[in-house]
Amino acid sequence: MNRFSKLGQYGIFLAFALICLVLAFSTPKFFTLSNLLIIGNQVSINALLAFGVTFVIITGGIDLSLGSMVAVAGVVAATFAHPDTYPLIVPLLVGLGAGSAIGAFNGLVTTKSKVPPFIVTLGTMTIGRGLALIFSKGRPISNLSDEFNFIGGGNIAGIPFPIIILILAFAVCSVVLNKTVLGRYIYAVGGNEPAALASGIRVSRVKMWVYTICGLLSGLGGILLTSRITTGQPNAGAGFELDAIAAAIIGGTSTSGGTGTMTGTLIGALLIGVISNSLDLLNVTSYYQQVVMGVIIIGAVVLDGIGKKD
């Protein structure tokens, strides 16, 4: 797409490979299959949200309501996931639907009101959290069916199911971004919105799509999380939006819009996962982990900026 963003992505890929190499030598447990599967499993939810927010950031927008959409989708899905009530498809559809609906709301308000998406989604973040608490009456929703709990906790041929979902979602998102007209329009809107409009692109419609897709993927993330912890938690997902945005940015998506790739975002999410995993293995307490993660986010963008200089 853009030779500089390719370069930036290349840089992040190298950094990722280098960190993995160092970890492989310093902690023997790191490069075992079981540990890698643990990382993949841990990364999956954040990666799904990061894919969603990558679409939004490429159009020049932002979505801060990811974590709240995770919670709403989680409690809504859990309500319909008790054993011997509804078939599995019902909690899945209502969960995805809840996420998509909030996403579509974000898109609608952003395009109709001209209020910056930062503000709109900041509002939705609070609204969503409130809705999750109202819907669950503030209590965790447990006693979920085994089929539902398989989504976040099951294995197929030894591979955790969330990893399979992650791979499928990555493939679909990459194809949408690179091979479809919508993907082309997403880059165009973020690259130069007035020119995209004058080129005949229905900019509002493109924005509606990206926020809705972002909501859909957040809903999927909410279902995964609820299934994994076998409980619909109204307080779940708080702060998830920041990790997802961090993954996209570490992966080379520019916050000013117009550039970014799904591969970059995937690597960004993996990098975050690998680092927190290895800090666990190295027995670094979680307090320090947060500091390290912040330094890495800034460092990645600084390095990316250096790579982008002509």
């Binding site: 797409m1 853009n2 690259g191 020119a195 550039t259």
Partner: peptide, 19 residues
């Protein structure tokens, strides 16, 4: 301002209205 998308290629710009 209204003519082209700077980050995109000649091809992507030229086909933008008719893609």
């Amino acid at each position: 301002g209204l003519g082209f998308i700077p980050q995109m290629s000649v091809k992507d710009n030229i086909t933008l209205s008719s893609i």
